[in-house]
Nucleic acid binder design. Structure first.
Lengths: 215, 215
DNA sequence: TAAAAATGTTAGACTAATCTAATATTTTTT
DNA sequence: AAAAAATATTAGATTAGTCTAACATTTTTA
């Protein structure tokens, strides 16, 4: 895929997320390109099966197109997080750089970023980060006890409302939306080493883990 | 500048570094492109004053061309070092990724990399890294006492040969070529906090600094 | 529902980067 | 120094991505 095709696909996906119908006019506006140009690119993308399209009719991403768009989105969001958290750039500074880096061809590079960030599932706006197969994370929460190591989750609920449990969570500064990264796992007692909000490390017993719901 | 123009400029610079004359044929080989294509790009670059050229005559980079090439080289070498030292990729893996990243347009991004690496003057092959003005570092050594904070230097000599001094250096595992990064400066006694070979931290008194030559 | 407005498509041209085939110049060899 | 070989250049075609002008279709409105 060329860089231009990737940018069209991104725009197509953005429109499909928020609007009723994808039109040539909207794509043209979004990419700041004239309609006839968009029209010919639409034909090109349809030929390559990234979209379904018949002239004067609606434009829709195919599964292939959506997956491709999500893979680019993944690279974009991982990059933004990386520029911010690892390189210490400001949130307002990262977008333009990520727009360029998202087009790099290197699984190695992006997988390493993913790893350094602890396989985050959401960017700081709360937007989900597609996985390396171009799939969006399930929005179904699971108990932390069912989750995997070296991955960042967000607290989405609790399965126990005893005051002592809630007080404990409070003392850790844990609230809905807080990030919990599993850094180690004790096979013997099923306790987990965790890092909270990318800052404090502690250990959760199996019982704690069973009562924390995360996404 | 287009990505293609940048790649030609890089090739031109590489040739100018190691060979007598830059020929259309050599450029074509290096970039794996046919000679007529190279010829037309040569004309284009000459029009834009990156090279001096008259047909059937020799090809030479202008100052403008050389500076541009060195700025790309700077981005390439900083990126390689970053991928290796910060992201932990293997030396054999970094080249292809750096070939892509070197074309990014973002002073912010590369300055931040430079900063994170401690403003290195040489890459791990010992190749010099051009500065942000496209100038190669002076190969003239200076006493460490004349150097600036937050910068990586390489030990290039000593100004004192007393056994006690050399034994001291040995005990720190310091030898010719070792990297010395100045991490802090004590204005009162002119002593310096340093990191040696990217590992051990220590403090050098003013007297030590005066007797270490670095590049 | 017919006219007007909005949107979409086709036709044809342009630029950057590439190619092959043909031609020109320079360099090497005999 | 003439012939042969190597190298360089020109001419003309191709592809991707863009444009403007003209035409077609659909949607809105009166």
């Amino acid at each position: 895929m060329t860089l231009t095709e990737e940018n069209y696909l991104k725009a197509l996906h953005r429109l499909s997320m928020k609007e009723e119908a994808i039109t040539v006019k909207r794509i043209a506006q979004m990419l700041n390109i004239k309609m006839p140009t968009v029209n010919s690119m639409i034909n090109n993308l349809a030929e390559k099966k990234f979209i379904k399209y018949e002239k004067y009719k609606s434009i829709e991403l195919t599964e292939k197109g959506r997956k491709q768009a999500l893979l680019i989105l993944r690279k974009h969001r991982l990059t933004e997080l990386f520029l911010k958290d690892v390189m210490g750039l400001g949130w307002e500074e990262v977008h333009d750089i990520a727009e360029q880096i998202e087009h790099l061809q290197s699984d190695l590079f992006f997988n390493r970023i993913d790893e350094m960030l602890g396989h985050p599932k959401f960017d700081p706006h709360g937007e989900p980060i597609p996985d390396s197969n171009g799939r969006l994370p399930q929005l179904k929460s699971n108990p932390l006890s069912h989750c995997v190591i070296n991955t960042k989750y967000q607290l989405s609920g609790v399965l126990n409302n005893e005051a002592s449990f809630l007080t404990y969570l409070n003392s850790l500064d844990l609230s809905l939306g807080s990030t919990i990264e599993i850094t180690s796992l004790n096979e013997f007692d099923k306790s987990m080493g965790v890092k909270l909000n990318s800052k404090n490390k502690t250990v959760f017993s199996a019982l704690i883990c069973q009562n924390l719901l995360v996404i």
